[in-house]
Amino acid sequence: MHQIEFLKVSKEYIPGIKVLDGVSFNVNSGEFVFIVGPSGAGKSTIVCLLIGEERPTDGEIKFNGESVSDIPHEEVPDLRRKIGVVFQDYKLLDSKTVYDNVAVALEVVGTNKEEIKNIIPNILSLVGLTNQKDYFPSQLSGGEKQRVAIARALAHEPDVLVADEATGMIDPDSSDGVVEILEKINSLGTTVIMATHDERIVDSLKKRVIRIEEGKITSDQEGGKYRV
């Protein structure tokens, strides 16, 4: 059984205009997959569909064998605890410290303060932010902010980590640091899906590359490159 299955998935935000057109692919547990393509190709739509933020117009999406295409509203939070997500703009709370930004993910599921105290140091150590735990986002670099976002996404120990243009707003050195962390997380067994148009990163990692253009998959290669 595949962990994630997209079966002829189409998405129209405006009737008649397909952002995704019959997209099919599978992702197995523990894989590291790049989804590449130009801006507007449909990469972020795939992420939104996967975390239940949008529903497909047509086709079916399965996660761990169960359909999430028409997932009931009340089951979406549970799905999002299994699929951690990181965005280009970090989505951090400026008024909270690094520690508190990560703690939010645990507080919302009712984890008590003692448990949070035990969990967070391990996550911050994994992303290399142990010394910055009391910093506010304004005191961090772009790469560090993205690592806080990754730490928050990891708080629930998700099965899958999805990074949507996670290196889009940071410099190449910081991007390498972020990708390094994603690789480390992947090596610990978490599936990583990274939507990006950063050619340098894709080409250096030699992982599976799914290329999407104008809403259609144009190539899907193991050990692939950004350009076919």
Partner: peptide
């Protein structure tokens, strides 16, 4: 608004 958006992204239930 941003705090609520983040809460939902990290799996907060409606009631939370």
């Amino acid at each position: 608004g941003k705090e609520l958006e983040i809460m939902k992204l990290v799996g907060a239930s409606d009631s939370y």
